[in-house]
Design a protein around this nucleic acid. Structure first.
Lengths: 252, 252
DNA sequence: TAGTGGTCTAGACCACTGC
DNA sequence: CAGTGGTCTAGACCACTAA
């Protein structure tokens, strides 16, 4: 073990290596904190700190009164197949479709009624809106097989949102995009910006992860044929349990 | 402050909110741990724990003997513009090109001479190789403006690697792909799988982040016109300091 | 040197689980 | 009930920074 490094960190390194070596497999229980305290010559508190590190990395789950368990961490995939040979319709690569292909059941109820709001700055900037310009907000919490999967918040400038029919409770992205297309604002170009940050308390509660655990914040901007930004959608997903996939062709 | 929650976590929540409110701006120094200990009625050790949480989330940087500073965290962008109107050559959307466009200087020296190795399982699987089949490994550590930016490890099955000219020290992806194309293995289809996990000690040392801090692990698979997987490249980037961008067209 | 963050102990108590 | 993880203290000492 590397000297000069804090002892509780070396314990974390040691346990991490043991898990990666397969010494403890998925689902296995690690020795209790008092046991490890004796083995490493540290107090229980310091062992607890070491295990908190591994929990933050998504390697183990600490269960109150039960023990520390190695996670199998089956990652949920989220695909964007960006290939004209594969997809022909804007909505067909959506999350729900991708998930249902694998026999999963999804639901995405609206958290509250769609309403007109001033969007946060990073959204307003992408929509090319000035301060205090309004957008139609659609806030959805999405589930797969009764497990929370992601938070999706969509912003559409009121100019393009028009009538109230975009405010339908069950409309997914494909429906929304279809409605926009009917009005001549059909999106044809997309940009996704992906960042990672710590989860807020609210996000953590819904996604059933620890507050501060890394989440993906994916901001998708939809642009129509005239170059107008017609929608921005912010997706929050648990980063340690998600695999994002992007595929594309690039002929000479 | 929410009751029932650990007090040091509530301190972290409180400070996080203050930073997000702008009460402490980028570059500002937070009060010292003894000062905060008195304010919140906790010991210095507990305040230190609270601050470690914020540091792990990438909100502040703890500097030994100096203090705790709010990070501006300018994210480095990494673009994949997947749009035939934008890119015409496979290599032109590469990381180095994208960075140099902004007046930045990049270098990507080989860590060691290219050599034949048995790839790790997640790579072998993507290449469709059996156990103990060999690949040419190219291991590079990349820099932008004298700051470490990413680790890139490329695997090419020996069948496609052929002669030793792929082992040139300075060859970037565009050169590599060009060589493959000359032999009839030019990649035309790409898949990128994106996951987030804690940094290993080795990765953390090079990227100058804390061990266990979240990193992107991006695995790109390059496929030629015949559907052969000709290369897999594993990229490691600091997730809290990086923005990934993907863009594409999707006409009806 | 004084002030900062970082580590560690010995011991305490709590809340939760499962027998 | 015993065993588990989680929190917290009071105090100590260390390593580093800046004046």
């Amino acid at each position: 073990m590397e000297p000069g490094r804090a002892r509780y960190k070396r314990v974390a390194d040691d346990l991490r290596a043991a898990i990666r070596r397969g010494e403890y497999g998925p689902g296995d229980r690690l020795p209790s904190q008092p046991q490890l305290a004796e083995r490493y010559g540290l107090t229980q508190g310091m062992i607890g700190r070491a295990m908190a590190i591994l929990a933050a990395e998504g390697l183990i789950r600490l269960e109150f009164g039960r023990g520390a368990f190695v996670l199998e961490a089956p990652r949920v995939s989220r695909h964007r197949v960006i290939d004209r040979d594969y997809v022909s319709q804007p909505g067909s690569s959506s999350f729900a479709v991708e998930q249902e292909r694998g026999g999963h059941v999804t639901k995405a109820p609206l958290v509250r009624e769609p309403e007109a709001v001033v969007p946060p700055p990073e959204v307003a900037e992408r929509l090319g809106l000035g301060e205090s310009e309004l957008t139609l907000l659609r806030d959805r919490r999405m589930w797969v097989d009764d497990a929370p999967s992601q938070i999706a918040t969509s912003y559409i400038p009121m100019t393009y949102a028009g009538g109230a029919d975009l405010a339908l409770p069950d409309a997914g992205p494909s429906v929304i995009y279809g409605r926009l297309a009917e009005r001549g604002f059909g999106p044809v170009r997309f940009t996704e910006d992906i960042e990672v940050r710590g989860a807020t308390q609210d996000e953590a509660r819904f996604l059933r992860i620890a507050s501060g655990e890394p989440v993906f914040e994916i901001i998708r901007t939809a642009i129509d044929a005239e170059g107008r930004q017609v929608e921005v959608c912010v997706n929050i997903l648990p980063a340690l349990r998600t695999r994002l996939t992007y595929g594309w062709r690039q002929d000479r």
